[in-house]
Simulated scan of single mutants.
Amino acid sequence: MSTADAVRSLLLLMPRIVGRVKRLPVPEQLRDLDLDLAPRHLSLFAQLQYDGPLTVGQLAERLEVAPTTVSLMVAELSRRGVLVRREDESDRRRRIVAIAPDLADAIAEWLGGSARAWTAALADLTDAERFVVVQAFRAFQDALGVTET
């Protein structure tokens, strides 16, 4: 496939993918909280849903944003009861962040479709091919000048 053919295909596919993701219904429990959810919130939820409770530093590293950005998001979502913070048993100075137990199933269901779709799309690829897919998305993001804050 030529670069031009690949670009044409992706220009057709990307709006469809974004449109489908945007149509994923926000769980009723979160709608009731009247949150102004941005893509960065979805990424934070996805990290916690996929990998379980993490520290603010771990979340910042995975989300590729500053720890202060994560701290602000965690504080906002904790006040609303979406996230819970607890002491790290191994280091009481650190806080572990998790999705609130009463919202965990709703968030897992909400985000699970995307995780299952990515798993299916990447399952038959080699590690090297998966690396290329991820790098292509990163390069696309960089070429657009998109940064998360």
Rank of each mutant, 00 (worst) to 15 (best):
T3L: 13
A4H: 08
A4E: 15
D5T: 12
V7D: 07
R8S: 11
L13G: 00
M14F: 11
P15D: 05
I17S: 03
I17L: 14
V21R: 09
R23W: 00
L24N: 07
P27G: 02
E28K: 13
E28M: 04
D32F: 00
D34M: 03
L35S: 03
P39M: 01
R40N: 08
R40E: 11
H41M: 04
L42D: 08
S43V: 03
F45K: 07
L48R: 07
L48M: 04
G52E: 07
G52S: 07
T55I: 03
V56A: 07
G57Q: 13
L59K: 06
L59D: 09
L59C: 07
L59Q: 08
E61D: 14
L63N: 05
E64L: 06
E64S: 10
E64K: 07
V65E: 05
T68Q: 11
L72A: 12
L72R: 15
M73H: 12
V74K: 02
A75D: 13
E76F: 01
L77T: 12
S78A: 15
S78Y: 03
R80G: 01
R80V: 01
V82M: 06
L83E: 11
L83S: 10
R85D: 01
D88C: 07
E89P: 13
R94L: 15
R95A: 12
R95P: 00
I99R: 06
I99M: 05
I99G: 03
A104V: 10
A104Q: 15
A104D: 13
A106P: 05
I107N: 03
G113P: 07
G113Y: 09
A121C: 10
A123H: 14
D124K: 13
T126N: 03
R130E: 12
V132K: 10
R138Q: 13
A139I: 10
Q141C: 01
G145K: 11
